[in-house]
């Protein structure tokens, strides 16, 4: 399942870099094969797993076996974390464009709030002002 997380991450990085675009493409094909219940061939998933477990084999071989066995579980956790963080990033970006701050309720907690948003004070984005 690591290929799904890899696809999301590399697709975003691919906006800026051609190398990551190629990796995103590989990850996409792997995801496509997974969703159609076909096994990935020497895919990006295997390469990533190889890099992680290979690194552990060189340094902490006990952990390598553990990561190798539960790699799918770790992949799912990583996918969920990636999806959740992507959701909050997109939401923050939307608020920033809309209100000048990524946190309209507490603009002071958002490092990139504009001066106008900070001066305006607390904004409730869910409050409807129509009368």
């Amino acid at each position: 399942m690591i290929c799904l997380a890899a696809f999301i991450v590399f697709a975003i990085l691919g906006i800026f870099s051609a190398t990551h675009r190629r990796l995103a493409k590989q990850a996409f094909w792997c995801v496509l094969r997974r969703v159609t219940f076909k096994p990935c061939q020497a895919s990006i998933g295997e390469i990533l797993k190889g890099k992680i477990v290979g690194w552990l084999l060189r340094r902490k071989s006990r952990w390598a076996g553990w990561v190798h066995r539960y790699f799918e579980v770790f992949s799912w956790i990583f996918v969920i974390i990636t999806l959740v963080s992507t959701f909050y990033t997109v939401k923050g970006a939307y608020f920033y464009i809309r209100y000048g701050t990524c946190n309209p309720e507490h603009p002071e907690q958002c490092l990139i709030s504009t001066q106008a948003a900070l001066e305006k004070g607390v904004i409730n984005p869910y409050y409807c002002n129509d009368k």
Binding site: Q41, A42, E46, G50, K51, V53, G54, L57, R58
Partner: peptide
């Protein structure tokens, strides 16, 4: 395939 990648990455 996985075995080949492990050999490459670990050794």
């Amino acid at each position: 395939n996985q075995l080949t990648i492990f050999l490459d990455e670990s050794a």
